[in-house]
Design a protein around this nucleic acid. Structure first.
Length: 256
DNA sequence: ATGGCTTCATAGTGAAGA
């Protein structure tokens, strides 16, 4: 039986709800991880999501951040934060489906490498590292997906010279991601032959999407125990071309 | 060209995103 999982930073679930519902009906993923839902739990559109055939768990807050998991089957063992890390920003949502642990992340953006938010991003990634070490011991079949706000390599950036040393590509961010992946997580996108210049985020400004001036910062990482079952991974650019889109495109992985 | 767009909170503009 095949299994399809996706991640999508919707940049406001309120604004993007019709996009999401259209996309769900077309793509029929088994699980979707959403980031930047930007609403409180009391405002989550449970009825619409349920009508579309999905269970939902969510970890929202007012105005910013917020993550959710939609699933055709009910999810279990929900966690909503990194352990032992005091943080009022809602960026984590973990759940279990059968024997697969799914961890949805909205990694801090960091603003700029000179910013206090950059320090927070690096500390957050350090805490994430500890958490994933433990989760890998508990759950050999692990999927860690979401908006990582890190482009792993220069080939994940349309204009590496322009971005060099800056946020999303700085050495410390990339090293933090590499250290996490070295625990036993694979970038599912890079398990397969991909064309050139595939990105998951394009700035709203400067006609960046039309010109494909993007960066690949949304990822689906999988543990070694899932490697043999993973069939494909691809970025779905279609909803990015719709009217009033999110600035991110969904990324999808399929498993047998 | 440190702007450029979009969303949210707010009722003017300003923060935040990446």
């Amino acid at each position: 039986m095949s299994f399809k999982i996706a991640s999508w930073n919707v940049n406001s679930l309120r604004v993007r709800l019709t996009h999401l519902l259209t996309w769900l009906s077309q793509e029929q993923p088994d699980v979707v991880a959403l980031q930047e839902i930007k609403l409180e739990n009391k405002d989550f559109p449970i009825a619409e999501i349920s009508q579309a055939g999905y269970h939902a768990v969510f970890n929202g807050q007012k105005a910013y951040n917020g993550v959710a998991l939609l699933s055709k089957q009910p999810l279990e063992k929900i966690e909503i934060a990194l352990p032992n890390f005091i943080d009022d920003q809602r960026r984590v949502l973990a759940a279990t489906l059968n024997d697969v642990r799914i961890i949805n992340l909205y990694v801090p953006n960091g603003a700029s490498v000179e910013s206090d938010k950059y320090i927070y991003k690096l500390e957050w990634l350090r805490q994430l590292h500890h958490y994933l070490q433990m989760q890998l011991l508990l759950y050999p079949k692990l999927i860690v997906l979401g908006d990582f706000n890190i482009a792993p390599e220069d080939r994940d950036v349309r204009d590496p010279k322009a971005w060099e040393g800056g946020i999303l590509v700085s050495e410390l961010e990339r090293a933090a991601l590499q250290a996490i992946m070295a625990e036993g997580l694979l970038d599912s996108f890079r398990l397969f032959e991909q064309g050139d210049k595939f990105y998951s985020w394009w700035d709203y400004r400067m006609n960046a999407f039309r010109r494909n001036l993007g960066v690949r910062i949304d990822h689906i990482l999988i543990s070694n125990a899932l490697r043999a079952q993973c069939d494909s991974c691809y970025i779905d650019k279609t909803p990015r071309a719709w009217e009033r889109p999110s600035d991110h495109a969904p990324i999808i992985a399929k498993f047998t």
